[in-house]
C-alpha cells in the first residue's frame, strides 16, 4: 500500500508544503488532476481548521499528516494534539443571498470537505485529534 507521511509546524505558511507533498503523492499514484485538486483543497481546509481552532494559531505545535492509497481510495489522516473539536454537527451552509449579514464569514471548510470527499471522520484518541478524509478514485 503506497503511503507517505509528513509533519508540519502549525502555521498557515506551511500548509502549502503539505499540499505539495500531496500533489507529489497523487502524481506518483497516477491520480487524475481534478481529484488531486479536490483533495488538496480539503487538506488545506482541514489544516486551516487545526491551526485556527485546535491550536489557536500557536506556531509552536505540529501536525502529522499521512497519505495512503488503498483499495481505490485515497485516505488522508490528519493528527494534532490541540483542543478537541466541540462542534460535531453535520456542516451546512445556508444563507439568504439577498441578506449580506447572513453570508458566511467562516465555517465553510467542513462544508467544502463534506461536499468533495466520500467520507470524513473525526475522533479523539488520548490527547490527539484524528481527522480522516477519504475519496474514491
Amino acid at each position: 500500500m503506497p503511503k507517505t507521511e509528513i509533519t508540519i509546524v502549525s502555521v498557515y505558511e506551511k500548509v502549502a508544503e503539505a499540499c505539495y507533498s500531496l500533489r507529489d503523492f497523487c502524481y506518483r499514484n497516477k491520480i487524475e488532476k481534478i481529484a488531486c485538486s479536490e483533495l488538496e483543497l480539503c487538506l488545506t481546509e482541514a489544516l486551516n481548521n487545526v491551526i485556527k481552532h485546535a491550536y489557536k494559531e500557536n506556531p509552536l505545535c505540529s501536525i502529522h499528516i499521512t497519505y495512503a492509497f488503498e483499495n481505490g481510495e485515497l485516505i488522508i489522516a490528519i493528527e494534532d494534539s490541540g483542543i478537541p473539536r466541540t462542534n460535531l454537527d453535520e456542516p451546512t451552509l445556508t444563507y439568504d443571498p439577498k441578506d449580506i449579514n447572513s453570508l458566511p464569514e467562516g465555517g465553510m471548510g467542513l462544508f467544502i470537505i463534506k461536499n468533495l470527499m466520500d467520507s470524513s471522520v473525526y475522533k479523539r484518541e488520548g490527547d490527539k485529534n484524528i481527522f480522516t478524509i477519504k475519496k474514491k478514485i
Binding site: 485538486s37 486551516n48 465553510m108 471548510g109
Partner: peptide, 18 residues
C-alpha cells in the same frame, strides 16, 4: 488555487461595497 479564507477576503470586499 483559492481556499475558504481567500473566499472570505472576497466576501469582505463584497460586504464593504454593498
Amino acid at each position: 488555487y483559492c481556499d475558504s479564507s481567500g473566499l472570505s477576503a472576497i466576501l469582505l470586499a463584497f460586504r464593504i461595497l454593498q
